[in-house]
């Protein structure tokens, strides 16, 4: 095999950006209410230039306040979740690792439910209570699962981790149900939390997501080489001079923060973190210097398109996005898997 350049060329990044931008424009132009393309684009341009909007058209009240923030949030959530999935799969040398299979998402939503049920809030920032608890619980559950896994099986085998993850997911959701049972009047509202909804995403949500993604994403991307070493084996990583403990902790903290923020904005969305890295690995190969950036863009595009389906297929009704991601994701996954095996 020819020696390949490790990372992507700048031109490739331009291509990725172009694809993502195209998906974004497509998702902003299509929606539950069909608006003339001209109106949509004019609205966007006017909003960007700060001009007054056409009062007779419906587009200004739909595109800018409702559709754009949602698409932006969806893109960020997709990017974050699939980046987390790729990083965890590398770090734990485990093809099934992902926020949902490892119980991190359930942990995060348990945190969010506790914040809602007991009215935990950060003074001055109404949105922050659920986010902070979701992050803390995401990190706590990750530590707990890995800690217990180490005690049982220091090689951290796939089976042990997945088994513990599933057990922890059940545990966390039973505690959530328990809290919901005693939350009385708030029961109904909290129940929706567990389903997750991207409706009502605001620019504030998007800002929080993008800042988090920029910080944690940059840190994760910078650890591509270390993750390559981990993917071969933890001992190997140690032998070639990777500061194993610190790298592990850094990656886990970044993953928890990302998943925690995503869960607090959109609820748990399964399958994105698991499937997108696998699909992309077929294109990029296993090198994390390529896989991680590809996951960011691939995850964003995948979730934006999934959300587009969720918004439009049954219009005026809306599907939970998790239904679409699981349905489409599993079919695509099986298809890619068979094609690559069959060759």
């Amino acid at each position: 095999m020819k020696q390949r350049r490790e990372g992507f060329r700048p031109a490739t990044y331009v291509l990725f950006l172009a694809v993502t931008a195209a998906a974004l424009v497509l998702c902003v132009c299509l929606g539950s209410v069909s608006l003339p393309l001209k109106d949509t684009l004019r609205t966007l341009v006017r909003a960007a230039l700060g001009l007054a909007q056409d009062a007779r058209s419906l587009a200004p009240s739909i595109v800018v306040p409702v559709r754009l923030p949602r698409v932006l949030c969806v893109a960020a959530v997709g990017a974050a979740l699939s980046l987390c999935g790729a990083a965890m799969q590398g770090l734990l040398k485990n093809p099934l690792a992902d926020g949902s299979t490892m119980g991190v998402s359930s942990g995060a939503s348990l945190g969010a439910i506790i914040a809602l049920a007991f009215g935990v809030s950060v003074p001055g920032l109404p949105f922050a209570g659920t986010t902070v608890l979701a992050i803390l619980f995401a990190f706590g559950s990750l530590l707990l699962i890995l800690g217990v896994a180490y005690r049982l099986d220091s090689s951290l085998s796939t089976n042990t981790i997945i088994l513990l993850g599933v057990i922890f997911s059940m545990f966390a959701s039973s505690v959530s149900s328990f809290i919901i049972t005693f939350a009385g009047e708030r029961v109904k509202t909290i129940m929706f939390w567990t389903l997750g909804s991207l409706q009502g995403s605001s620019y504030q949500n998007a800002a929080v997501l993008y800042v988090t993604l920029a910080v944690c994403g940059a840190i994760l991307l910078a650890h591509g080489r270390e993750l390559n070493a981990f993917a071969v084996g933890e001992d190997n990583a140690r032998n070639i001079g990777v500061y194993v403990r610190r790298v592990k902790l850094t990656v886990l903290i970044c993953v928890s923060v990302l998943i925690g923020v995503c869960v607090s904005v959109s609820g748990t969305i399964g399958f994105v973190g698991l499937v997108t890295p696998h699909m992309l690995r077929r294109l990029t190969g296993p090198n994390h210097r390529r896989l991680l950036p590809a996951s960011v863009f691939g995850g964003a595009v995948f979730l934006m398109l999934a959300d587009l389906l969720a918004r439009t297929v049954l219009s005026p009704r809306e599907l939970p996005i998790g239904v679409v991601t699981s349905f489409v994701g599993s079919i695509v996954f099986v298809y890619i898997f068979f094609r690559s095996r069959g060759r």
């Binding site: 539950s32 009240s61 739909i62 909804s197 219009s315 005026p316 009704r317 809306e318």
Partner: peptide
């Protein structure tokens, strides 16, 4: 009235349909 039973609907649709009145059953805590 074109939706059957209880259903999740798009925010955009509410804006497009411009109802004259809204009845919400949300609880206030």
């Amino acid at each position: 009235g074109d939706v059957a039973g209880y259903a999740e609907i798009s925010e955009e649709q509410v804006i497009e349909r411009k109802p004259d009145a809204i009845v919400t059953i949300s609880m206030y805590y």
